[in-house]
């Protein structure tokens, strides 16, 4: 299966999502609703995406965009799965049951963005101290210990 066959397969499987599937730089991008993320991830794993490369998030202002990168050794292809969660109830299903690799990566996203992962076995802060207040990679993070860099440009 190559990336085009994958696209056809996903289009038949997710008819409402098909317009949102694009192939950029040889990597597929699949945008799903947050509540369908786990199903989509599970399907993709069964299709041969056996490696979870990274889990990260982007603070887009009013919501968070979660970005998962999956990789298939068989297809020599990668795919991005993106899902958006609202800022005030930032929560999404964990994929640790599919890839144990998600364990630490989701903890990192929880630590730095404050997004909770339902079903995660051990959701604690990983990089910062346990008593840290706030989630630093949020765009509205305030900390009086930060000295802003003077603007030269």
């Amino acid at each position: 299966m190559n990336i085009n066959e994958l696209r056809e397969h996903l289009c038949s499987e997710y008819p409402d999502l098909c317009p949102l599937f694009s192939v950029e730089f040889g990597d597929g991008v699949l945008v799903v609703e947050a509540k369908r993320l786990h199903d989509a991830a599970s399907d993709l794993r069964d299709l041969g995406f056996d490696r979870l490369g990274m889990v990260t998030a982007v603070d887009t202002g009013d919501e968070f965009e979660l970005v998962y990168r999956l990789q298939s050794r068989e297809m020599h292809a990668g795919i991005f799965v993106k899902a958006r969660v609202p800022r005030d109830t930032a929560s999404i299903a964990s994929v640790t049951d599919l890839w144990p690799a998600a364990n630490w990566q989701e903890r990192e996203v929880y630590d730095l963005f404050g997004i909770t992962f339902e079903g995660h076995p051990d959701l604690r802060r990983i990089l910062l101290t346990d008593d840290w207040v706030g989630h630093p990679l949020r765009k509205d993070y305030e900390d009086d210990r930060i000295i802003r860099r003077p603007d030269y440009i």
Partner: peptide, 15 residues
């Protein structure tokens, strides 16, 4: 950059 994320291999290996 609006956001930069480094997918670090050592992080995943250490897990």
């Amino acid at each position: 950059p609006y956001r930069m994320k480094v997918r670090s291999p050592a992080f995943c290996n250490l897990a």
